[in-house]
Design a binder for these strands. Structure first.
Lengths: 124, 124
DNA sequence: TTATTAGTACTAATTAATTCGTATGTCAAG
DNA sequence: CTTGACATACGAATTAATTAGTACTAATAA
């Protein structure tokens, strides 16, 4: 029996990123891209995409002989869910400590922050 | 055989957080705290802490009859590693998109950002 | 002294995640 | 028509993560 909780595992995320990028993809599309990165069987990719469909991350429809898969939800939305889950797990739900880490570890500089804040505000 | 890559799994993180909090802990300490949250066997906790030791996250020494476990690395350092891994996996290594998400999803407000930036800068 | 308690060591069972093989069907080229 | 390419369905093997059982030992309470 397949598990019940619906978080994206690392391998699943890898595939989802490809499908988001293309808008839609067949098993073969994904397979060929993954194959450039590592050894993998065609049917493994098929299984993963089937699982992603049952988990509600992908929708499929027939196109010619093969299935064409599309994302069921926009990337932003899913990624935000992953961020929320990460913050819950690591920081008990509070986002500030994450930012503190980002700044302290020099992954973000002050001017990046300013820029981003301005950007977001302008887009509203 | 135990796996080779040394990232903290969710359950392992849960235990590490307890040990960091206390500075040091026996299996029993951790067991009793976890038991308040869910059903778990004493030996399960023991196994996990042993794994954490072999992975290099905990050090042990005998105290009376039992082992006393201590963190092998400071919490900040390990958490930063987890953040880095998350950013690599989800955003291909770039931190800005993460911040954009945090701000857009209202998990961080502008004044929080300012405050944190000031705080970090003053502490240097 | 004896029985109980509290600990570890070692092994194993279970659940989840990942990968793959085989059977089968359909289409198109020859 | 037959063969090869390519697709899915289904089942299963493998690897990783999590949980637990049993045997044994040392300390201690009765």
């Amino acid at each position: 029996m397949r598990p019940k909780h619906n978080t994206l595992t690392p391998q699943e995320l890898e595939i989802m990123k490809l499908v988001w990028q293309r808008g839609a993809a067949t098993v073969r599309d994904v397979y060929e891209t993954l194959l450039e990165r590592r050894k993998i069987a065609y049917t493994s990719v098929m299984t993963m995409m089937k699982i992603l469909e049952t988990k509600g991350y992908l929708k499929k429809r027939r196109q010619d002989r093969a299935f064409l898969y599309r994302p069921a939800h926009p990337q932003n939305q899913v990624i935000r869910g992953m961020i929320r889950e990460f913050i819950d797990r690591v920081f008990n739900g509070s986002a500030e400590p994450l930012l503190v880490h980002l700044v302290k570890s020099r992954r973000l500089r002050e001017r990046d922050l300013q820029k981003i804040v301005r950007m977001v505000e302008e887009s509203e």
